[in-house]
Simulated assay, not measured.
Amino acid sequence: MRPLRFVALGDSLTEGVGDPVGDRWRGWAELLAHGLAPVDAAVEFTNLAVSGAQTRDVLERQTPEALALRPDVVSVVIGVNDTLRCTFDIRSVAERLDTVYAAFRAGDTLLMTACLPDPGSMLGLPGALARPLARRQRAVNTVVHALSERHGAVHLHAAEQEWLTDRALWSADRLHPGERGHRQLALRFHALLAERGIAAGAAPSGEPECAVPTRSASLWWLATAGTGWVARRCTDLLPHLLTLAASEVRHRARGTSSRLDIGAAHAVSAALAALSVAEQRDAA
């Protein structure tokens, strides 16, 4: 009997950033892998996630490689980096995710997905800068939730307030979970899988092996690696984000901020409706 095969797709969250083990990242997916099968059964785990990946990378690069491995279980957790680009388009994001999810479900692979908090809130950006990013992430989460239901995925809600406010769950960069946060993600996914009778092994431990990052560690990250992170994204995002922020300020001054939310909601509805039409056409 061949080992159970688990393949993880996504960006830095799934790559394991924030959970260092020696000279590498571990992360929630690897922690979860050990609990998918009983102790006397083997699990083959492959992590294809890459820091900075967007939905296009998952579709064009990671998915073909994952399909070739013929996985029994696959996780696709992606979308935050799309919201940080001036090219963000929720319809394109929806089309890519729908194609990726369908590809794995066609092979009867168990699919795992998650919705995530927005980076503006995590970084503590000023309201005019944070609100456009929050709106984009809500759009992505709505699409992920709808498509997860359509494709029968095991879906984890990880965008709730408790997840945001518990500082002990986050690494020094305030963008990625720390070890404790990665362990909580693994535990919560394991619980969902166990409810379906899929996770047959023991749940991963929730107790961290390392201390929670100190405030000085957070400040050091912001002054060193954080500066580079912001600089790389500002080249692409900042001019566009400033335009979005200016629009945000104008609408708030006029009392018409709700129009921005309504517009975003309409875009999500149109994106999902277009997928439904395409699905019906293909089925005909």
Score class of each variant (00 low, 15 high):
residue 4 L to D: 08
residue 117 P to M: 08
residue 216 S to E: 15
residue 194 A to Y: 06
residue 199 A to E: 03
residue 34 H to R: 14
residue 133 L to H: 09
residue 234 C to L: 13
residue 227 T to P: 02
residue 203 A to K: 06
residue 284 A to K: 13
residue 251 H to Y: 06
residue 163 W to T: 11
residue 143 V to D: 04
residue 162 E to D: 15
residue 47 N to V: 08
residue 258 S to W: 12
residue 162 E to F: 14
residue 75 S to R: 00
residue 76 V to G: 01
residue 210 C to G: 11
residue 201 G to C: 08
residue 44 E to S: 15
residue 56 R to P: 04
residue 249 V to L: 15
residue 105 R to N: 04
residue 190 H to L: 10
residue 80 V to Y: 02
residue 278 A to P: 05
residue 85 R to W: 07
residue 53 A to M: 09
residue 145 H to R: 15
residue 275 L to V: 09
residue 205 S to Q: 09
residue 133 L to G: 07
residue 1 M to A: 15
residue 15 E to S: 10
residue 183 R to G: 06
residue 148 S to V: 12
residue 224 T to G: 03
residue 6 F to H: 02
residue 65 E to Q: 15
residue 244 L to T: 04
residue 27 G to F: 03
residue 239 P to K: 11
residue 201 G to P: 01
residue 46 T to F: 05
residue 151 H to E: 08
residue 237 L to S: 02
residue 108 D to Q: 15
residue 74 V to H: 00
residue 282 D to G: 15
residue 241 L to T: 02
residue 5 R to F: 10
residue 175 L to Q: 07
residue 101 Y to F: 15
residue 150 R to C: 09
residue 242 L to R: 15
residue 156 L to S: 03
residue 272 L to K: 08
residue 185 L to S: 01
residue 229 W to Y: 14
residue 188 R to Q: 12
residue 40 D to A: 13
residue 184 Q to R: 15
residue 258 S to H: 14
residue 42 A to N: 08
residue 194 A to K: 14
residue 228 G to M: 13
residue 215 R to P: 07
residue 276 S to K: 13
residue 167 R to K: 12
residue 168 A to Y: 11
residue 274 A to G: 03
residue 233 R to C: 01
